[in-house]
């Protein structure tokens, strides 16, 4: 609404591909409206670059509503930018001031290699999910949905964990590049629900093992992940993961490999 347009200087990480070295390139953007979203500002920059025949800045995005988890920008030293509980795609330029210099970097972590510019490969998360982030139930065989009542507080807490959008900001912000919050969110979601009980031992073991194999760091409880998580997933889920893991290691349970149904 306000026609108080701003001039912004952007320092953006440019990297041709996975193996090339990258560097920062500086762009000056006059006429930025405070009502623009951060990604719209990048769109605008890209339009200009393309008009000049230059390579557009690559960045992941899709829903632009803060739910798909695609956007992944480290903005001025913060995952998803300065606001709490907000993804980069929902960040608007009114959070910045005229004359600001904004440094934009990709997520930095060994298990998240850069594909191009600001785009990183987060398939490690999928592999962790594949290792055990599910309940083994075949299509068709489910009992009536109201067969198992679940106390509302429990269901709500499971939901809080399930709200994770898999964006990887937790890894990006963690000084150890630990994926604990992401993994904990899934483990916690399924461990809280009665449907998830039968496989809880195998699940937590398999997911942690895969997490380690992917090369994420170990958690030292700095809680930066919770602070930067756009869905504000609580680190109490990490505590639950730890408990589940200890329980799995200490209690001998008759639970098959993660998949018993085949």
């Amino acid at each position: 609404m306000a026609d108080t347009s701003m001039t912004i200087t952007l320092k953006v990480w440019r990297q041709k591909d996975r193996t090339s070295p990258g560097q920062f390139v500086t762009y000056t953007m006059p006429n930025i409206s405070p009502d623009m979203s951060f990604l719209e500002m990048l769109d605008l920059l890209n339009l200009e670059l393309v008009r000049k025949g230059e390579d557009a800045i690559a960045f992941d995005h899709d829903c632009r509503e803060g739910i798909c988890g695609s956007c992944s920008l480290y903005i001025n030293g913060r995952a998803h930018g300065p606001l709490r509980g907000v993804t980069a795609c929902q960040l608007h330029m009114r959070s910045f001031k005229d004359g600001d210099t904004i440094v934009v970097e990709p997520w930095r972590a060994k298990p998240f290699p850069v594909i191009k510019d600001l785009v990183v490969d987060r398939s490690a998360f999928d592999r962790i999910m594949t290792a055990g982030g599910f309940i083994s139930v075949r299509t068709g065989g489910a009992p009536d949905a109201n067969t198992i009542p679940i106390p509302k507080p429990v269901a709500d807490e499971a939901f809080d964990a399930a709200a994770c959008i898999g964006c990887g900001a937790c890894v990006a912000a963690c000084k150890n590049s630990s994926a604990m919050l992401f993994v904990a969110a899934k483990v916690s979601h399924l461990a809280l629900l009665p449907q998830g009980y039968p496989e809880r031992k195998a699940r937590v073991e398999a997911m942690v093992a895969q997490m380690d194999e992917e090369g994420f760091g170990s958690c030292t409880n700095t809680y930066a992940c919770e602070a930067e998580c756009p869905k504000q997933i609580s680190v109490s889920h990490i505590a639950r993961l730890n408990r589940e893991y200890l329980r799995a290691k200490m209690i001998e349970e008759k639970s098959g490999p993660v998949d018993c149904a085949g």
Partner: peptide, 12 residues
């Protein structure tokens, strides 16, 4: 590492 990292804003 990050060029700019404002870790003090998210952790102690």
């Amino acid at each position: 590492g990050y060029e700019v990292n404002r870790a003090h804003e998210n952790s102690t």
